[in-house]
């Protein structure tokens, strides 16, 4: 008897939940992108460890390079940390942008994307929303690197304004760069391939640069490479913003590469995402 009554109640609750009611208009483009951005933030909230995976390497580099090579490279560990930290910031944020591609690759192979694609919202909003959420990831990884730097004795000459400006610059750069990795994510089968290919692109870019050492002692050909390396341009702009030697021209120069990447790989990402799966 009791069970029977309960059964009927469940039926009634479902029936009540299904009652026709005025249905709102589906979310517009901006609101759909923001909603997917919120989803990305929830994922960071539920899996904060993902964020730490990405900053472990830069933190290790900061500690190792500062105390091992700092004295030899810059005369003192303190002086070297002042030089190194902006470079490490760039390195960690740039590697985090590979992670955007990686999460998209794992995410997209799941059934939930079928649901999104069968809903009456702009078909690209899941991808753009995820990328928007990733900006928070970039910001958090910058903050972690800054925190480690301050613990080790780093000082930003331009203070809080310089720090905020650098974080914004890095966010813009990484958001643009991430289109390369979202393209990769949509082309290859497994997340680990995205990671491997990402590292293959980024390792030479971060080492053949001014992240770790002043290029003045490098061979001439390598100095030319560094002069054109987008990562090096970003490091120069970031250093400038933090030590007060920056200029609008340096910042603008560092943003050319992400703009070009967005113009080329943005549409490619969109086209690949729209492809049938």
């Amino acid at each position: 008897m009791a069970i029977d009554t309960q059964r009927r109640d469940v039926g009634a609750a479902i029936r009540a939940a299904l009652k026709p009611r005025p249905q709102p208009k589906p979310a517009g483009t901006v609101s759909a992108v923001l909603t997917f951005g919120w989803r990305a933030l929830l994922k960071i909230k539920h899996m904060p460890e993902q964020l730490f995976d990405v900053v472990v390497t830069p933190i290790m580099f900061t500690v190792l390079f500062t105390y091992l090579f700092g004295g030899a490279l810059a005369g003192s560990t303190d002086a070297y940390l002042q030089y190194l930290l902006p470079g490490i910031l760039v390195q960690s944020v740039v590697f985090t942008s590979v992670y955007s591609g990686l999460t998209l690759n794992t995410d997209i192979s799941k059934g939930i994307y079928d649901r999104f694609r069968s809903m009456p919202v702009w078909s690209l909003s899941p991808v753009l929303g995820t990328m928007a959420g990733d900006v928070v990831r970039y910001t958090v990884s910058s903050l972690i690197v800054f925190a480690i730097g301050f613990l080790m004795g780093y000082e930003a000459a331009t203070g809080i304004l310089g720090i905020v400006a650098v974080i914004l610059l890095l966010d813009l750069f990484a958001a643009g760069l991430s289109f390369i990795f979202t393209t990769l994510a949509l082309l290859v089968r497994t997340p680990s391939t995205v990671m491997t290919l990402g590292w293959m692109v980024l390792m030479p870019l971060t080492f053949a640069s001014n992240v770790f050492v002043d290029p003045a002692t490098m061979p001439a050909w390598l100095q030319t490479v560094v002069a054109w390396n987008p990562v090096a341009l970003l490091v120069t702009a970031a250093r400038g913003l933090l030590d007060g030697t920056g200029s609008a021209a340096l910042v603008a120069g560092s943003l050319v590469a992400p703009l070009v990447v967005t113009a080329v790989f943005g549409p490619v990402t969109m086209a690949l995402y729209r492809r049938e799966r």
Partner: peptide, 22 residues
């Protein structure tokens, strides 16, 4: 195959869909 997001809670999943539907 489950067309819900395993990383989110049950409630967050439904709120997500409801917001997308306006």
């Amino acid at each position: 195959f489950a067309s819900v997001d395993e990383d989110l809670t049950g409630r967050e999943n439904l709120v997500l869909i409801a917001r997308l539907l306006g």
